[in-house]
C-alpha cells in the first residue's frame, strides 16, 4: 500500500509539473498537431484522411512519449532531484514504472488528437476501436521505454531531444506508415522490420483500414519484447551509471 502511494505520488507530480514544459509543448504537442493538420489539409478526400490516420496517430504517440521522458528524467537528473527518488524506499523498477506511466498516459492522449480532427473531416465508421486502442497502448509503452533508454543515456535535455530525433525521424519514413515497406529498397527493408514502430503502425493500419500485413499477435509480441528489453536495459544503465 505504501509503495502504491509513492507510485501514484510520483505519477501525479510528473503529470502536474511536466505536461506543459516547453520541450513537451513543442515536440510533444505542437509538432504532432501541426503534422496532423499538414497531412489532413493536403489530403483531398475522406479516404486519404483515413489512410494517413494510423501514421499520424503513431507519430503523435512516438513524439509525445519520447519528449515527455526527455523532460521528466533528464531534467530531474540534471537538477539532482532524481537522486531524491533513488533514495526513497521504493524499488528501482517501481520508481521507473511511476516515472514512465505519465508519459504512457500522455502518449495515449496524444494519439487521439488526430482522431478528433479526423472525426470532423472523414467517415470513421467500421474502425475496430478495441484493437486500435490496444495498438495505441502498445505503441505508447514501447516508445516510452525507448524514450527512457534515450533519457538515461544522456545528461542534458537538449541532448535527449537530439538523440530522440536520431530514432524518431528514420522511424517515420521506414515503418511503412507513409511509404509501404514493399515499396522501400530491398536493402532497407530488414531495417524497417527492426523498428518497433513498424509493428505498432501495422496494428493501427489493420484496425483502421484493414490493410495491415503482419498478424496482430506477432506485432503485439514484438512490441512486448521491445518494451521489456528497453526497460531492462534502461534500469541496468541506471544501476550502473547513477547508482555508481
Amino acid at each position: 500500500m505504501k509503495k502504491l502511494l509513492a507510485f501514484f505520488s510520483i505519477l501525479m507530480k510528473d503529470m502536474k509539473n511536466y505536461y506543459l514544459k516547453p520541450p513537451n509543448i513543442s515536440w510533444g504537442i505542437i509538432f504532432p498537431v501541426s503534422w496532423t493538420l499538414m497531412f489532413f489539409i493536403r489530403s483531398s478526400s475522406d479516404v486519404d484522411i483515413r489512410g494517413i490516420l494510423p501514421g499520424v496517430m503513431a507519430l503523435s504517440v512516438l513524439f509525445g512519449t519520447t519528449s515527455m521522458l526527455a523532460v521528466t528524467i533528464t531534467f530531474e537528473r540534471k537538477s539532482r532531484s532524481f537522486e531524491r527518488l533513488l533514495l526513497a524506499p521504493i524499488s528501482l523498477n517501481l520508481l521507473m514504472l511511476a516515472k514512465t506511466t505519465g508519459a504512457i498516459v500522455f502518449g495515449i492522449i496524444n494519439a487521439f488528437i488526430p482522431v478528433v480532427f479526423a472525426s470532423f473531416l472523414a467517415n470513421l465508421s467500421g474502425v475496430n476501436w478495441i484493437s486500435a486502442i490496444i495498438g495505441v497502448v502498445f505503441i505508447a509503452v514501447t516508445s516510452t521505454f525507448l524514450g527512457l533508454f534515450i533519457a538515461v543515456s544522456v545528461s542534458e535535455v537538449f541532448e535527449a531531444q537530439t538523440f530522440s530525433n536520431f530514432f524518431r525521424f528514420p522511424m517515420m519514413f521506414l515503418c511503412g506508415l507513409f511509404i509501404p515497406i514493399e515499396d522501400l529498397p530491398v536493402i532497407v527493408r530488414p531495417l524497417s522490420y527492426m523498428l518497433p514502430l513498424t509493428y505498432g503502425a501495422d496494428i493501427l493500419k489493420s484496425s483502421i483500414n484493414y490493410n495491415g500485413s503482419i498478424q496482430m499477435w506477432v506485432s503485439l509480441l514484438v512490441l512486448l519484447g521491445y518494451s521489456l528489453g528497453l526497460f531492462l536495459i534502461s534500469t541496468h544503465n541506471i544501476r550502473k551509471r547513477w547508482i555508481y
Partner: peptide, 26 residues
C-alpha cells in the same frame, strides 16, 4: 544532500507533502 535538490515548480508545502508520500505517509 549537499545541494538543495527539491522541485523548483512546486511550492514549499507541496515539496514536503510529496517527499512524505515517498515514504508511504497518508
Amino acid at each position: 544532500p549537499d545541494e538543495s535538490n527539491l522541485y523548483d515548480d512546486m511550492s514549499g508545502f507541496e515539496n514536503l507533502v510529496f517527499c512524505a508520500s515517498l515514504y508511504g505517509i497518508e
